[in-house]
Simulated assay, not measured.
Amino acid sequence: MLFLTFLIACGAAAATGYFFQPGTWYDELQKPDVTPPRWVFPVAWSVLYVLIAWAASRLAVIPGSGTVMALWSAQIALNTLWTPVFFGAHRTDIALGIIILLWLIVALMTFLSVWLDAWAAMMFLPYLAWLTIAAGLNHAIWQDNR
């Protein structure tokens, strides 16, 4: 049941992708050659959200996990915010700030999780890797489309 609760939170974050889709604005942007095809994003995020929820459900029951769970809450809020800022408001500069803060929070959450549940911490590593790629893409798009 706990896993389902965290999966619903991740689903809410994912829903912003439905309401704020890339559209023609995104299609017309200069993007780096390493930009993955569109179909990769929903596939990657689906896997990541399952891992993020699974890790949270493991960590939430561990005594002393309050700080990690507070960071989990902050990261899902920032994760939810990025899509409407980037795709909705077309503010690649603000979105870059959000994703950098998101990366820092996920990195700290991952580091602190190691001491509580190493498996949960490892489940955050693909998320951190994907955020690294996404931040690089966001930065390149911001730089090339001012």
Rank of each mutant, 00 (worst) to 15 (best):
M1W: 12
F3H: 05
T5W: 10
T5E: 10
I8K: 06
A9N: 00
C10D: 06
C10S: 08
A12L: 15
A13M: 08
A14G: 13
F20Y: 11
Q21L: 10
Q21F: 10
P22G: 06
G23S: 13
G23Q: 11
T24V: 12
T24R: 12
Y26E: 02
Q30T: 15
Q30W: 12
Q30F: 13
K31F: 15
P36V: 12
R38F: 12
V40L: 15
V40M: 13
F41T: 08
P42V: 08
V47R: 00
L48W: 00
Y49E: 00
Y49P: 02
Y49T: 00
V50D: 01
I52L: 05
W54G: 02
W54K: 04
A55D: 02
A56E: 03
A56P: 01
S57N: 03
R58N: 03
R58A: 02
L59D: 06
I62C: 03
I62R: 01
P63I: 03
P63Y: 04
P63F: 04
G64S: 06
G66H: 11
G66P: 09
G66I: 09
V68Q: 00
V68R: 03
V68T: 10
A70Y: 11
A70H: 10
L71S: 02
A74V: 13
A74L: 15
A74M: 09
Q75R: 02
Q75K: 01
Q75S: 06
L78Q: 04
L78Y: 00
L81A: 14
L81I: 08
L81Y: 05
L81C: 05
W82Q: 04
W82A: 03
P84T: 10
V85W: 13
F86H: 10
F87G: 09
F87I: 09
F87L: 12
G88P: 11
A89H: 11
R91T: 11
T92Y: 12
T92L: 14
T92E: 14
T92M: 15
D93Q: 13
I94N: 09
A95W: 07
G97K: 09
I98Q: 11
I99Q: 12
L101Q: 09
L101I: 14
L102I: 00
W103Y: 14
W103A: 12
L104C: 13
L108K: 07
L108G: 02
L108N: 02
M109G: 01
T110I: 11
T110E: 10
F111Q: 09
S113R: 07
W115L: 07
W115N: 13
L116H: 13
L116G: 04
W119F: 08
A120K: 01
A120T: 00
A120Q: 09
A121F: 02
M123V: 04
P126W: 02
P126I: 02
P126D: 00
Y127F: 06
L128W: 04
W130N: 00
T132W: 03
I133F: 14
A134L: 09
A135C: 08
G136I: 13
G136F: 10
N138E: 02
N138G: 04
N138C: 06
A140W: 13
W142I: 03
D144C: 07
